[in-house]
Simulated assay, not measured.
Amino acid sequence: MTINIGLIRHSWLLVAPAAEKVSMHFYGKLFSDYPQVRDLFPPAMDLQRDRLLKALTQVVLNLENGDALGDYLGQLARDHRKYGVRPEHYPAVGRCLVAAMRANAGGAWLPVYDEAWTTAYNYIAEVMIQAAEEDAAHAPPSWTGTVVSHEVRTPDIAVISVEPDQPYPFRAGQYTTLQSAHWPRVWRPYSIANAPRHDNRLSFHVRAVPGGWVSTALMRHTRPGDSILLGPPRGSLVLERARTSHLVFLAGGTGLAPLKALVEESAWMADRPSIDLFHGVRRSADAYDTYDLRRLRSQHKRLRVIQAVSEEPAHWPQHTAVDALEYHRVVPDGDVFVCGSPEMVRETIVRLLAMGVRSDRVHTEFTPDSPSFVPS
């Protein structure tokens, strides 16, 4: 099977300006031609349409990189098992996707583009179906978790501890997706804020986002004893990416969660690295995890924690996490891990590169050019 990358890229340029229309056309046709698949999707489709565009962008940008594309598709397939996706759904998706692009190419679509995309999509479907089948041999589509504790730390941040009903294999720094019983079929990503534990429990730092269905349900309407669903673990923000003995962690808000998990994991390593952790918050009252960070500091003798406050007039100096890095004259001569909002990550990476930090030593879940998504 030979994929004509040139034709794929050229045809993508035709439809990229109308990407939102392509997405709406795709879902409209899919639900019209195959109404039985509608129940696999959430009631509101806005975010789902964005996810389609991001997934398509990832595939188009990585066609030459077989390993990276295979890893991405495998992860996507494992995650899609929680929706109830089956092998017979893939051909329907492919037909509707090509039809949507053809209809929104401004009359410039050629028959050879149909052939190129069909070939590419058949390859994608084959990889995803195989990955899903392999995953089904040893893992459930999703896990049911029981809320063990729910601590409100600030007016809009809660720390929630969940115990999955089966062993949950993950690595420190990874994230998962959560579904609240209040919003069936609506999943949102959250970083796991601890390293793997003997009791199988997972901790999540949840910030209630205005208008956020899942975050509001988890923050305001969830109590110990409630059940939530967890998707499979995802992500690659793991310690193995580091190659140096001095690490700098830059966290914005609840972006602290995966970096805290990495600190927790490293505390018990025989050759534990030295870590400078900068946690940026807007106001002092937003520093929601101070007690646990102090506990980690007592366990990890090579950890330093610095809090940066950026928007509190009475606090001096007013710093973001990367401001504090420069202010304290910490030389980022090793690997740097960054997690926070998409804007925080982009701005921080620009600053780090300007300081002379090598790009291959800056680690985040996504690059600035990737789809804007950072777990919270």
Rank of each mutant, 00 (worst) to 15 (best):
G356K: 05
H138Y: 11
V322E: 04
D271I: 10
A208W: 03
S227K: 15
A44M: 11
T320I: 02
A105P: 09
E311V: 06
D199V: 05
A208F: 05
I349P: 00
R197W: 01
V248R: 05
A287I: 01
L352S: 02
A108H: 10
A181N: 10
H182S: 09
V37P: 05
R243W: 04
D135C: 11
L229W: 10
D135K: 01
L229R: 14
A77R: 00
A44L: 15
V152P: 00
G212R: 01
G6W: 08
L296H: 02
P43E: 12
R329S: 10
G107R: 04
M344F: 15
Q318G: 11
V186K: 06
V362Q: 13
M24E: 15
R9K: 13
V98W: 01
G70H: 06
I228E: 11
P210L: 08
L97M: 13
H246P: 09
R78M: 11
A131L: 07
S376D: 08
Q174S: 02
D79N: 14
L47A: 14
V350W: 13
P87W: 02
T177F: 11
R95I: 14
D135R: 03
R302E: 14
N104V: 03
V152K: 14
S266R: 01
S180K: 01
Q48I: 07
S376W: 12
R282L: 12
Q318N: 12
P232Y: 04
V98P: 07
L230V: 03
V338G: 01
D156K: 12
A44N: 13
H205A: 13
R81E: 04
E134R: 13
H315L: 11
E64I: 01
I306A: 14
P258N: 03
V238M: 12
G253K: 00
P164E: 10
T348S: 02
R49E: 06
Y83K: 08
D165W: 02
